[in-house]
Simulated scan of single mutants.
Amino acid sequence: MEGVSNNSYIDGMKWKKDEGAEYADPDEQQKLEQEDFFKLLTEQLNMQDPSKPVENDQMIAQMTSFTMAEGITGLSERFDQFAEDMTSNQALQASTMVGRKVLVPTDQANLEEGAGVSGMIATPQTAQNVKINIKDSSGAVVKTLNLGDMPEGTKEFEWDGTTTTGEQAPAGNYTFSVNATVGGQTEELPLQMHARVQSVSTGGERGVVLNLKGLGGIKLSDVSEIS
């Protein structure tokens, strides 16, 4: 009959759940430790057929297999702990960034009351007639910044927060777009904006996430610069 053994020791090692008993992890109750393995090996030697004893190489192979399995399990546990420590260390380092500004790949910026915003433009070659259009949440252009010609590379820019009429723009999110003439053709250049870090989140598939004021979360690995 299935599940029945003639060996009392082996039967005694089977996990038996008492009625009414609760276990947090049944798999842990059925795990064989190194001591259990050697007890099973000893029992196997005692029960072997004297006319067909276990060969030395078979015994060594069994011991080696168990040792390798135990080593792999231990290595996996240490790796998990290492990954957890790395995440905790990243979170601790990221927490020091709260209140500071970071440069991130986005075309939006949060304008704080009485302040301005800044960013960075990149061009693969010399660009002429570089212009930055700034739009509010409704899509209306509130101001255009004329930067003239720009050599290959990156260039920082700043908007003081005023509109075309010279009035202070209300606080909130604004969208930026950069147009320039590159190689005789009009192109839109990539840009990055500075944003203020409000808090730090950990866990999940994204790992350490910086929560930016008005812009939501961004992965720590996407940050280009810390001000």
Rank of each mutant, 00 (worst) to 15 (best):
T154R: 15
T154M: 12
K155F: 06
K155T: 11
K155M: 11
E156L: 07
E156A: 13
F157C: 01
E158D: 08
W159I: 04
W159M: 09
D160A: 06
D160L: 02
G161I: 03
G161Y: 06
G161D: 08
T162E: 01
T162D: 00
T162Q: 04
T162L: 00
T163D: 01
T163R: 05
T164I: 09
T164D: 13
T165P: 06
T165Y: 11
E167Y: 15
E167Q: 15
Q168A: 10
Q168T: 10
Q168V: 06
Q168C: 00
A169P: 09
A169S: 12
P170K: 07
P170L: 01
P170C: 00
A171V: 00
A171D: 00
G172N: 08
G172L: 05
N173I: 05
N173F: 00
Y174H: 07
Y174N: 04
Y174D: 04
Y174Q: 06
T175Q: 10
T175M: 02
T175G: 03
T175V: 04
T175D: 11
F176G: 12
F176C: 13
F176S: 13
F176D: 12
F176Q: 13
S177F: 09
S177C: 08
N179E: 13
A180F: 05
T181I: 14
V182R: 03
V182A: 04
V182G: 03
G183C: 02
G183Q: 06
G183M: 02
G183Y: 01
Q185M: 00
Q185Y: 06
Q185T: 08
Q185W: 00
T186M: 02
T186N: 10
T186K: 05
T186D: 06
E187M: 13
E187A: 05
E187Q: 14
E187T: 10
E188H: 14
E188S: 15
E188G: 14
E188W: 09
L189R: 07
L189C: 08
P190K: 06
L191S: 02
Q192I: 00
Q192H: 03
Q192N: 07
M193F: 11
M193L: 15
M193K: 10
M193Q: 14
H194W: 08
H194D: 00
H194T: 01
H194S: 00
H194F: 05
A195Y: 12
A195D: 10
R196Y: 09
R196K: 15
Q198M: 14
Q198E: 15
Q198R: 11
S199D: 14
S199W: 12
S199R: 15
V200R: 03
V200E: 04
S201E: 11
S201Y: 06
T202N: 13
G203K: 08
G203A: 05
G203F: 06
G203Q: 09
G204K: 11
G204W: 07
